[in-house]
């Protein structure tokens, strides 16, 4: 069973900019985990530390009882896949070439045929089969995201880390992608960890939620345990109302202006 143990993780870019502090958590088994929290609390940095893209200033990350720093790069890539938020500017590459890159850790001399089978399956799952021969940089942001997801799936890792996988997607594809990630965790025994800003989507599909605040973990647990008015007020500084829908907490934010101004108050602008 896949297991991640993070112990006393700290990360800083420079002395005065501590990004992560005192992160200790154990995650076990195939499940869908969401990391939530406001912008800039270190969600992406945490993911980067798990995948050794960044080296922590202090503390350790163990994957299956082995420190990630001790893995050979390709072995780690077989364990952990990472789907970035955006791939940024790049030289033109066809979609199929892009997804094929995910096969790198498994790549052997003359393995194109086997790789292609996995790649096609991944592209079909992400609904990008018809884009196969198109240039990646000619696609829309949403299509980019699905291609990157297909690449992550083609990598066939045991742990899949995703940085806002639904950010650029329309609602239809958001639902499809989240369901698919859920499916991956159940059917293919993959531990899926995604960063999300959509609390309700996270609440509806996640097995567990990690709520972060100011560089450390504020709350961990099932959606019921984490998504509540107090936590949301503390972490996001937003008043909300939680109702239960489909057995999961559903958050309805209250307009902060409305709350602070009260009813029937004249609209006014103060100039300092």
């Amino acid at each position: 069973m896949t297991q991640i143990d993070i112990d006393d993780l700290h990360f800083e870019y420079s002395k005065d900019a501590l990004i992560l502090k005192d992160i200790s958590i154990s995650l076990k088994g195939a499940q869908l985990i969401s990391i939530i929290g406001p912008n800039g609390v270190g969600k992406s940095t945490l993911i980067h530390c798990i995948d050794r893209i960044l080296s922590p200033t202090k503390g350790t990350v163990l994957v299956d009882d082995q420190n990630v720093t001790e893995y050979r790069p390709k072995d780690l890539a077989k364990k952990i896949g990472y789907v970035p938020y955006t791939s940024g500017d790049s030289f033109p590459m066809t979609v199929v070439d892009t997804v094929l890159m995910g096969r790198n850790p498994h790549h052997k001399w003359k393995s194109l045929h086997e790789d292609m089978i996995v790649v096609e399956e991944a592209m079909r799952m992400m609904d990008v089969s018809d884009l196969a021969m198109r240039q990646f940089n000619e696609l829309s942001a949403g299509q980019h995201q699905r291609v990157m997801l297909a690449r992550g799936i083609a990598q066939e890792p045991e742990i899949l880390l995703l940085d806002e996988p639904t950010a650029n997607l329309d609602i239809r594809h958001q639902m499809d992608v989240i369901r698919l990630l859920k499916d991956l965790s159940v059917k293919k025994d993959i531990m899926v960890i995604m960063i999300s800003h959509d609390l309700n989507l996270a609440s509806k599909y996640s097995d567990n939620i990690i709520m972060m605040s100011k560089g450390s973990i504020y709350a961990v647990g099932t959606p019921e345990e984490v998504i509540n008015e107090d936590n949301i007020r503390h972490v996001y500084d937003v008043e909300s109302e939680i109702i239960i829908r489909d057995d999961r907490p559903f958050m309805i934010p209250k307009d902060p202006e409305f709350v602070s101004r009260g009813e029937n108050k004249e609209f006014s602008v103060s100039i300092p």
Binding site: D51, D75, L76, A77, G81, S87, S90, N104, P105, L161
Partner: peptide, 18 residues
């Protein structure tokens, strides 16, 4: 082959074992 993967960005390339 490895260099091609790196053209899409270092973070992604590292995560694919480059």
């Amino acid at each position: 082959h490895q260099m091609t993967i790196m053209t899409t960005g270092d973070n992604g390339a590292k995560s694919m074992g480059v």
